[in-house]
Design a protein around this nucleic acid. Sequence first.
DNA 1: ATCGTTCATCGTCGATAAACGATGAAACCT
DNA 2: AGGTTTCATCGTTTATCGACGATGAACGAT
Lengths: 112, 112
Amino acid sequence: MKSFSPASPACLAASSEDVAQKLAALSHPARLEILRRLGGRSCCCKEVVAHLDLAQSTVSQHLKILVEAGLVRYEPERQRSRYQIDQAALAAVSASVSALVESCCAVEGADV
Amino acid sequence: MKSFSPASPACLAASSEDVAQKLAALSHPARLEILRRLGGRSCCCKEVVAHLDLAQSTVSQHLKILVEAGLVRYEPERQRSRYQIDQAALAAVSASVSALVESCCAVEGADV
DNA sequence: ATCGTTCATCGTCGATAAACGATGAAACCT
DNA sequence: AGGTTTCATCGTTTATCGACGATGAACGAT
């Protein structure tokens, strides 16, 4: 599935800061719930609000954070703005974490 | 590879809070560097300090956070405390993230 | 016994995050 | 036109984070 060439781990590892930033966006229960809620479809803000019992302004803020992290795509439609998961970006984060784990465990088997 | 039964996603998903907490521990560049540094072996604090150019107290703090998140094992040896990655825990986090991604992308293919 | 190392903890400070209510813009409905 | 709905932003408050120096404990070496 991962279309990354194993020869250039740089594109996976990225800078620690880069990965850290995206993980920071994921490191809040509400935002994880939002992602689950978004699922594959696109939702408007209100829909998420109804699901979360947080103030609308708070949810909007969380959505903004996810958008700024590049994990969610945002289309400011008229009244009902559309929020939609950026699956590729999310998959990239997952890959980064996997890469991290592997790089940490690699020594054991002397994989290099 | 994953020895989780797909029938009980609860053990993967855990609570959002649980996952979020572990991700929070990973969401700092210094801590990612520390994990990379730890690799498979066990290091003492000073070793990490030398690698990071941060104050010793700061590094100790970061290590503590990683330990509290359950991602690093800590053995308060005499003078040179040993820090070692908990590979299983780290792998579990990776699995959680993967699960999240999949659950978010599943709708597209109607995988359920 | 005394020094030098290594390390964890404490207290502090500035910066950032999290949450909320209030406000105003934009669009829809009647 | 007038009311309603949806949403983003602003301003505020409280809490937590990140980093540091200082301190003291435990140990090894001399």
